[in-house]
């Protein structure tokens, strides 16, 4: 059984030190985190690392990763992320992203599809819904957003570990920094790129779209819009699950991802 614990390191990208967790073995899988930043090596990382080499970078400006001063917009973040993958020394990767990480993965796929083997978008931002709205997590504040994110926190195996205690001052500082960073990149237009749906049809990549049926942040409608825009995609909806399938339903989530990625071998 390969090791599933990560190695922590920093790599330099565009002059910035970028924090990276890397673990497992097999084909490379790069995971872009959501607005709350890199929550560490979670159970879904461990499970996926049994079959893949998982790279979990902390995006610039979040957590321990530096943000180059010129990096201000989501478009900047997209181009930076291409460089980041290049610095990982990888020719071709599978890419998985959740919420803004999913949006980022979709943007990267649009700009450089030849770099990607398979694409996994999880409750991803990036497309403006036609009916509903993407909930304004900034306006709801941290506590209000927390109430919207999970369908049933009791079913989350890692809930206590992640949220069962008051954050230390250092952790609180990083939370504020992450919120500030998310605001910097995603303030306006809020959580979507108007041109993205028009560009996604060029992404001829096997694509898995995963959505929690009860997502109250990004409506399921957006999952359907992604499915319609990406030619070789399919949408898998997880029942009794909110916005965060990797944490709320890690077993079901990793099973879906593993099966999809192993279809590539």
């Amino acid at each position: 059984m390969p090791t599933v614990e990560p190695h922590e390191q920093f790599i330099e990208v565009a002059g910035a030190q970028i924090h990276l967790l890397k673990g497992g073995q097999g084909k490379p899988l790069v995971i872009f985190h959501s607005v709350e930043g890199n929550l560490g090596w979670r159970s879904y990382h461990r499970q996926l690392a049994q079959d893949f080499t998982v790279y979990a970078p902390t995006l610039p400006g979040f957590g321990l990763s530096q943000r180059p001063p010129w990096l201000e917009t989501f478009a900047d973040l997209t181009r930076f992320s291409l460089w980041l993958v290049q610095e990982l020394g990888l020719q071709k990767v599978s890419l998985l992203g959740h919420f803004i990480g999913g949006w980022l993965a979709a943007e990267v796929a649009v700009v450089c599809p030849q770099m990607i083997e398979r694409l996994i978008l999880v409750d991803a931002a990036g497309i403006q819904p036609q009916q509903g709205e993407i909930a304004d997590i900034f306006l709801h504040g941290q506590e209000g957003t927390k109430r919207l994110v999970y369908f049933d926190p009791q079913q989350m195996p890692e809930y206590q570990e992640l949220f069962g205690r008051k954050p230390t001052p250092e952790e609180r500082e990083i939370q504020v920094q992450n919120q500030e960073n998310a605001i910097r990149y995603c303030w306006k237009p809020y959580m979507y790129d108007r041109s993205l749906p028009w560009l996604l049809p060029r992404v001829h990549l096997p694509t898995l779209i995963v959505w929690g049926r009860e997502d109250q942040i990004v409506p399921l409608e957006c999952g359907e819009l992604y499915r319609q825009a990406i030619p070789e995609s399919r949408l898998a909806v997880i029942d009794r699950c909110g916005h965060c399938p990797p944490l709320e339903k890690p077993e079901e989530f990793t099973r879906l991802v593993r099966e999809f990625l192993q279809g590539a071998s």
């Binding site: 900034f138 504040g141 941290q142 504020v176 919120q179 500030e180 605001i183 910097r184």
Partner: peptide, 14 residues
């Protein structure tokens, strides 16, 4: 008032 209404994250250069 909610504190983050008066000083949203990013409003003060930390």
């Amino acid at each position: 008032l909610p504190g983050d209404f008066m000083t949203p994250p990013g409003y003060n250069s930390r």
